[in-house]
Amino acid sequence: MHAARQIGGPLLQVENISLSFGGVRALANISFEIREHEVLAIIGPNGAGKSSMLNVINGFYHPQEGRITYKGKTRARMRPHQAAAQGIARTFQNIALFKGMSTLDNIMTGRLLKMRQPFFMQALYLGPAKREELEHRAFCERIIDFLEIQAIRKTPVGRLPYGLQKRVELARALAAEPELLLLDEPMAGMNVEEKEDMCRFVLDVNEHFGTTIALIEHDMGVVMDISDRVVVLDYGRKLADGTPDEVRADQAVIDAYLGVSHEETASAAAE
């Protein structure tokens, strides 16, 4: 299936990350790596620390311990806009689009870091500023074609249905031409067809653009199908890390997901 793409060395390494809010330990001593061009799924029950992990990666939370190495550079404290400048884009669990703007403007905003024209040229909308605007428009139109949202390009995103909003959010993240794309539950709340579409887009992005993708997802069918590797978190700890098949067979994971049956153990003891 992924014959064309080559999974490379580690793009991002997370080492011994610990994060707490007051007395609550959100992440405890987590280490894993995201390899170039792969699709990595982060799974775990609710409250396992998956979203916190993404927030740490793109600089939104600052972990108390541990370090992050991205593209060979170990990172000190970083702000989200610095992460964006280094090529990390993401989508959110609860859609975080700019509701007052059209689909096209949302996607164009995603390309903001690529635009260089000074302020006064923009106010005059002359020569280079206009050219720059049109070049980026052309790029955004390619993303619009890719994600099949041509019909809604002028619609204010607040009026779009949920599934399309998720797609626009993916489009906005893609507009930044990221090297690492973090997707926080891209398929939550979707019906089967929408999920299939989204899976196709995620795989296409990975294949065509070579974008490394780290995604959080609850739908196990989706996770096992599209990801190259899976990291399992539970209560802020890492339970397992490996290919879908390895993870599926891991006893700790099974216990965390299905629960250890106390009745069985009790009845076994009684017998």
Partner: peptide, 10 residues
């Protein structure tokens, strides 16, 4: 519209 998302875009 969404200052957190704006920051994450850069």
């Amino acid at each position: 519209d969404m200052d957190i998302a704006a920051e994450i875009i850069g």
